[in-house]
Nucleic acid binder design. Structure first.
Length: 646
RNA sequence: GCCGCUUUAGCUCAGCAGGUAGAGCAUCACCAUGGUAAGGUGGGGGUCGCCGGUUCAAAUCCGGCAAGCGGCUCCA
């Protein structure tokens, strides 16, 4: 019997039934035989010794393939578990395997949990195991044997019992057996380049009602240089972190004396925020929105009617009991407020769509462990908007909003995002308004709109708002966490709850549909996000200080410096003059560390010629420019949102 | 909220076999200072996160609480 194997280049070759991946690699070339790490057979990762018994497509993986990293990290996870099992006899094990970012293993130790302080020891023991270079064999073991190997370990027992089949594929190194891997390397010594990174809690099987295990995070590479580069990358993340930059650039702070999750905006951060707020209001006014102000407090009854009290209570601050029967509630969302605006007048179909927008301040009682700088706070101001439309306007309005979003992203140079259609969780419907027909209808409407526009998206169950499905725009933070930036939400429920109507062409009352949307998220989250993507070097139009003027000599050049400052300020440029009695180099350095877009040094030469010496942020080569040319250039740069090529 | 770690001057951190605090940067003063990333000298500044306990004595040991960090769960 022979089987036919097809290679990535399309060529086919016959092999004996049961041939191993390694044998095939060797048959192609000696060097490939040496470099081969694993295979990908019909899309599935297989180890080198796997016997192939059917026709199929085979890719031989070498260290250069991304998938090879999965094999390596799985192997490292296996070796970590083997090390831990030997070092901590009373340790129990949850899941452990490679991730997009390395690998992890969940542990639970009766004699005290592992902590970061143990990592050095564990690493040394793991290195010893690697050095011994034992053979890692793929074996088939019965459930009973596995249960014996992990006797007394409730997590592994549960994982073993969840396996289908009698003989379970597993890997063995000496006495240690573990399962659940796709493919491993065949020698422990091949996983010698790794680093144990951190320890963190993780719920068993991701359920918060389950016990919490200790998760060891780590990463492995084939080359030391790759590991070094990755560790460097992880260190550099810190430099992007908006909390670090927020302190260095004096943007904001959070003080426990005042309250966790309640940020204070320093003048620099406030300038950025104000600039963005003015920008987005102008944009929305131009797009047909009407901007309003509504109270952040309301009678609790409002949120009972909206459904927030039933479905969103755990995220709300407790109501204030005014003592005379009145209960006031800090609003967690602005939609009920905008509904009041809608309802204040009789509405005609001629007015729709009605677009109500507000930079609406809201309060949500976020769990203490979820708070993080400006990214997750308890008081936030949302770039909120609610559009009230007739049912046949939904599609167009959806496109309008999407268009607005894209235009705004362009101005902020936001390019790295994905679309997520967020549906309700069909297995947990009590979290949501109960109306299957509405859900099915609105979910398919959203999907239809995205398909019509030909946009790529992925679907996620359980991510919807309690009142309706959403289109979310997902971005990543500096630390790599997923985060929602913009959102468009279809809502048939609230209009129902509040008995919203408009008079139709037929003179009858009709129910409008509400579209909730946030374009640039909350001011807090958006500015955190921008700080990270810009690494604190805000484009000129957003920079707190746009120009720093440094006179060469405080006595001789101050008059010119001051007139320069006046000229720029008169054009609306945020300019500072450094009058301190310090060396020029010192002031220049500070302007650079503060990431000021332009530093102007002026002395005799500039004063006599009506020029400025311009040093752009990040550049070490100043250039001399005519004063008027510089002023015009920066004014137009600010006006164009600092975009080049426009 | 949960697990682990952390909390000392404005910032970054040292001190910790228990004997009442230190550096660099920043700040202030004085001196110096004309060309593109840190000039010099000196001074001021901390009830060592908060509350309680052990002790003759606690920044240091123990307990509780709070906040921060890494995650998990949740989320704009």
């Amino acid at each position: 019997m022979s089987i036919s194997i097809e290679f990535p280049d399309g060529s086919k070759k016959q092999f004996d039934d049961g041939v191993s991946v390694l044998e095939i690699a060797k048959s192609i070339s000696t060097s490939l035989g040496k470099k081969a790490i694993a295979g990908k057979f019909n899309g599935e990762l297989v180890d080198l010794h796997r016997a192939l018994k059917q026709d199929g497509k085979l890719q031989i993986l070498t260290a250069n393939d991304d998938d090879a990293l999965i094999v390596l990290n799985d192997t490292a996870a296996f070796l970590l578990a083997a090390t831990l099992k030997a070092a901590y006899p009373k340790m129990h094990f949850g899941e452990g395997h490679s991730t997009a970012d390395g690998f992890f293993y969940d542990t639970d130790n009766e004699d005290g949990q592992v902590t970061v302080n143990d990592l050095a020891d564990i690493k040394a023991q793991m290195q010893a195991l690697v050095k011994a270079n034992g053979e890692i064999k793929r074996v088939f073991v019965s459930k009973d044997e596995l249960l014996k190997a992990f006797a007394g370990d409730p997590y592994k027992e549960s994982l073993i019992n969840a396996e289908s089949g009698v003989q379970i594929p597993a890997y063995q190194l000496g006495d240690f057996v573990d399962f659940g891997y796709r493919a491993l390397l065949d020698k422990a010594g091949e996983a010698k380049i790794f680093e144990l990174l951190s320890v963190a809690g993780a719920y068993w099987q991701g359920k918060s009602s389950n016990p919490m295990l200790q998760r060891i995070y780590a990463t492995a590479f084939y080359k030391q240089a790759d590991l070094d580069a990755d560790l460097k990358r992880r260190a550099e993340i810190k430099e992007r972190d908006h909390r670090t930059l927020g302190r260095e650039l004096d943007l904001f702070f959070v003080d426990p004396k005042v309250g966790a999750g309640l940020p204070y905006w320093m003048p620099n951060g406030s300038t950025i925020r104000r600039t963005i707020e003015r920008y987005i209001i102008d944009r929305e006014l131009a797009a047909g929105y009407e901007h309003v102000y509504t109270p952040i407090l309301a009678n609790l009854d409002l949120y009972k009617q909206s459904g927030h009290w039933d479905h969103y209570r755990e995220d709300m601050f407790p109501p204030m009991d005014m003592g005379d029967g009145e209960m006031l509630e800090l609003r967690p969302m602005n939609c009920p407020s905008h509904i009041q605006i809608y309802q204040h007048h009789i509405r005609s179909y001629r007015e729709l769509p009605i677009r109500i927008a507000e930079l609406g301040m809201m309060h949500r009682y976020e769990k203490s462990g979820a708070l993080s700088g400006l990214q997750r706070v308890r008081e936030m101001t949302l770039n909120d908007g609610h559009t009230f439309v007739t049912p046949d306007q939904i599609q167009d309005e959806f496109k309008n909003i999407l268009q607005l979003m894209m235009n705004v992203y362009e101005d902020f140079d936001v390019t790295d995002y994905t679309f997520r259609l967020s549906y309700r969780d069909p297995k947990n419907t009590e979290k949501y308004f109960d109306d299957d027909e509405m859900w099915n209808k609105s979910q398919s409407m959203l999907k239809g709109a995205m398909d019509d526009l030909g946009l790529d998206y992925y679907e996620a169950e359980g991510e919807a708002a309690f009142y309706g499905p959403k289109l979310d725009v997902q971005t990543k933070t500096a630390l790599g966490n997923d985060e929602t930036l913009s959102t468009i939400q279809l809502d048939f429920m609230m209009p129902e709850k509040f008995h919203l109507v408009y008079t139709g062409e037929d003179g009858q009352e009709h129910r409008p549909v509400m579209i909730h949307r946030g374009v640039i998220s909350t001011m807090e989250r958006f500015i955190a996000y921008l700080t990270e993507i810009y690494k604190g070097a805000f484009p000129t139009w957003l920079a707190p200080t746009q120009v720093e003027i440094i006179p060469v000599n405080l006595d001789l050049h101050m008059d010119y410096a001051e007139s320069l400052q006046k000229t720029l300020a008169a054009k609306g440029i945020r300019v500072k003059l450094d009058k301190r009695n310090e060396k020029m180099g010192y002031k220049i350095r500070e302007a650079q560390t503060q990431k000021v877009p332009y530093t102007l040094v002026v002395g005799d030469q500039e004063k006599n010629d009506a020029t400025v010496s311009v040093r752009a942020y990040g550049s070490d080569k100043p250039s001399t420019e005519d004063l008027n040319v510089f002023v015009d250039a920066i004014v137009s740069e600010v006006k164009n949102f600092s975009r080049t090529g426009k």
